[in-house]
Amino acid sequence: MAQYDALLVVSFGGPERPEDVMPFLENVVRGRGVPRERLLEVEGHYQRFGGVSPINGQCRDLIAALEPLVDLPIYWGNRNWQPFLTDTVRQMTADGVRRAAAFLTSAYSSYSSCRQYLDDIAAARAAVPGAPPIVRLRHYHDHPGFIAAMSDHTREALGRLPEAHRDGARLVFTAHSIPLSMAATAGPTGGAYEAQLRAAAARVAGDRPFDLVWQSRSGPPSVPWLEPDVCDHLTALAAEGVKAVVLVPIGFVSDHMEVVYDLDTEAAETARELGLHLTRAATAGTHPRFVSMVRELLDEPEPAACPAACCPAPRRPGA
């Protein structure tokens, strides 16, 4: 068992006031060449919900659920908004933390979902003299606790469909789309992001047929991303005669704006227009098996570090 004296929860971050939305989005897209028009469009998604992302509240809920199970001080740092990771590492250092474990609120291999967080941790440590080593806990897309949580939530969502449509309902698993170039280099040998998502979806689906689709594309049209888009797929299913769908956000462990807007708003509106019965499974959140999974990860041997060439950073505009 690895020895740690603190647990660091590392997440994406999100605004909690209307005036924070645009500065937050500018942090998210810095260096990516995203047009201002796209930022204003996404800002509108947040303002529709009062300028508050659900992700910070869900991180607090997860930490509260972990505290009775984890006999360690728990810290929390974000990539894109307060509490910023560097500030958290500074506090950990001042508190005398000697070796911390990092739990990422992202279960899969890719630049955006793993390597970028590792780079963030390295940058935060470099900015804080005397910062302790911080070890990322392993990927957990295949951990029984994560699979059990998503399986329970999927069954609950099926149960919310009209009884006559439950047996024939299609399970549609969703994850954040990424550029094809990023997907091709995910993991030590490439392709890990999509492969891990498909494997997790298959475990949750069991004997039921399922589809894996993508959401929340944000890049320019000239750059190919993973497809099909969830709304396009709903349209295709309706044309095939499918009557009911359960959306399962297998790519997210907590509700992001991408979940509550892209699925609960846009996809739900598409389903209504198509006459589809649609429910959405909850994210893993604070499901007891997901929370206990974090405890179990802490008890595992320290994971090997990712190879240096794993999940390389994408080329940015002008690079």
Rank of each mutant, 00 (worst) to 15 (best):
D120Y: 06
D119P: 00
M150E: 01
A126W: 00
P162C: 06
T185G: 03
Y117P: 07
L158Q: 09
Y140M: 11
A183H: 00
P144G: 10
E163S: 15
V172I: 14
L161S: 11
H176W: 05
R166Y: 04
A169F: 01
D142S: 14
A124Q: 01
S181E: 08
R138I: 03
F173C: 12
P144Q: 11
P162Q: 02
G191T: 12
M150C: 12
V172R: 00
E156G: 06
A183I: 06
S151D: 11
V128M: 02
V128K: 00
V135H: 08
A169S: 06
G190S: 03
G159E: 14
Q116S: 12
G187R: 01
G130E: 07
P179H: 13
P144K: 06
G145C: 08
H143P: 12
R166P: 05
I147V: 15
T185W: 00
A164V: 15
A164S: 10
R160G: 15
A184L: 07
M182N: 11
G187C: 09
A127E: 03
Y140D: 09
G191D: 05
H153I: 13
A184C: 12
S181T: 12
G145D: 11
H141W: 09
A184V: 12
A186Y: 00
H141I: 04
P129T: 13
P144L: 08
V172F: 02
A122I: 08
R170D: 11
A175N: 07
T189K: 15
D120H: 05
E156K: 02
T174A: 10
Y117D: 05
A169H: 03
R138F: 00
S151E: 13
L158D: 03
P129K: 15
A183N: 09
A122E: 05
Y117C: 08
F146A: 10
P188Q: 15
F173M: 13
A164F: 03
A123Y: 01
A124R: 01
G159D: 14
G190M: 00
P179N: 15
A164W: 02
L158V: 12
L171W: 01
H139T: 14
A169W: 02
G187T: 13
T154D: 09
D120S: 08
F173T: 05
